[in-house]
């Protein structure tokens, strides 16, 4: 694997090469480096680009890597990945997309991921997005995540756009069954003239279903961020969304909450807070010996942890 690909693999997945267990690498628009495990089968789709990840029922402690790596400037990659998680399984999936662009052309990856999480299954899904390279071509990552949570299941999503992504439009749609839970935490950093849209549509259909949508973001330079969150409580359920943003320089941050209760026992909360770094936070860290710039860096890094 080329050095640039290794670098972005490390950034998005925390690994230096091919891991153990089940995995599937997508490199420059081609699915390669597959491996199945005893309980997880990864199958290339025949009708379109993408894979099916099939986890057997009652699988425990399974770790699956599915990184996407691109260093071919100008590539426009669209992929459909479907996840079928068997009943009572406990699975940890590390996805993520890294783009290295040294060229003039925009490089784009759009991953459409659909989760079918079986009864009482528990899934943790990590997705990091990262861009680097010396070229002037934009690095664009626009994922769509479609989630179907069966009774008693849980999906926990940690997503992070850590650096270097010029444009992102991410959409997450979920239907949540009885006693099922969706927990998402997204972290977004935009700098320069980057733009990030993030959009959640959550249907709390099941009795005692719940959703927690937490977004923490920092907008620097002249970047723009837009956070939309729609939660519909259609049964006895709990929904919570929180957008917490630090705005710096000449950036723009917009947060649009939308909660609708269609059931008398739906409990829905939305919180949105946008503001610059508090002066007393800077003062406190300076009183510990940090310069103004060091204090700012520490506050931003911790906020985006």
């Amino acid at each position: 694997m080329k050095t640039e690909l290794k670098q972005i693999l490390q950034q998005v997945s925390g690994i230096d090469g091919v891991p153990s267990g089940a995995y599937s690498f997508r490199i420059n628009g081609i699915s390669e480096l597959h491996n199945n495990s005893e309980n997880t089968e990864i199958v290339k789709k025949l009708d379109r680009a993408g894979i099916d990840v099939v986890v057997k029922a009652n699988t425990k402690g399974e770790l699956i890597h599915i990184p996407t790596l691109i260093d071919e400037s100008g590539l426009d990659d669209l992929v459909y990945n479907d996840f079928f998680i068997g009943e009572n399984s406990e699975v940890h999936i590390i996805a993520g997309c890294g783009i290295h662009n040294d060229g003039l052309h925009a490089t784009q990856h759009s991953g459409i991921h659909t989760f079918y999480v079986g009864k009482n299954a528990k899934v943790k899904y990590e997705e990091k997005h990262y861009g680097q390279g010396t070229g002037t071509g934009n690095k664009i990552i626009s994922p769509q995540t479609v989630i179907h949570l069966a009774e008693g299941s849980t999906l926990e999503i940690d997503s992070a756009q850590i650096d270097g992504v010029d444009y992102t439009k991410r959409l997450t749609k979920a239907t949540i069954g009885d006693n099922a839970s969706l927990i998402t935490k997204e972290v977004i950093l935009t700098t320069k003239s980057q733009t990030a849209y993030t959009d959640f549509h959550i249907e709390l259909d099941g009795q005692n279903s719940s959703a927690s949508i937490v977004s923490r973001s920092v907008a620097k330079g002249q970047s723009k961020q837009f956070f939309y969150s729609v939660i519909n409580g259609n049964n006895k359920c709990q929904g919570h969304s929180a957008c917490d943003a630090i705005i710096m320089d000449h950036a723009t941050v917009k947060a649009v909450p939308d909660v609708t209760a269609n059931h008398v026992d739906a409990q829905l909360i939305h919180e949105a807070a946008i503001g610059k770094i508090a002066g007393n936070q800077i003062t406190k860290l300076m009183s510990l010996g940090l310069s103004y710039e060091e204090a700012e860096q520490e506050i931003v890094a911790a906020f985006l942890r």
């Binding site: 010996g289 310069s291 506050i299 985006l304 942890r305």
Partner: peptide, 26 residues
Amino acid sequence: IDERAKAGIGFAFQQPVHFKGMRVID
């Protein structure tokens, strides 16, 4: 402030400051 901190002056605020994301050990 930071020059004084480095010179050996420390200060515990009357109103402690909140930090989102920053842990006690940090």
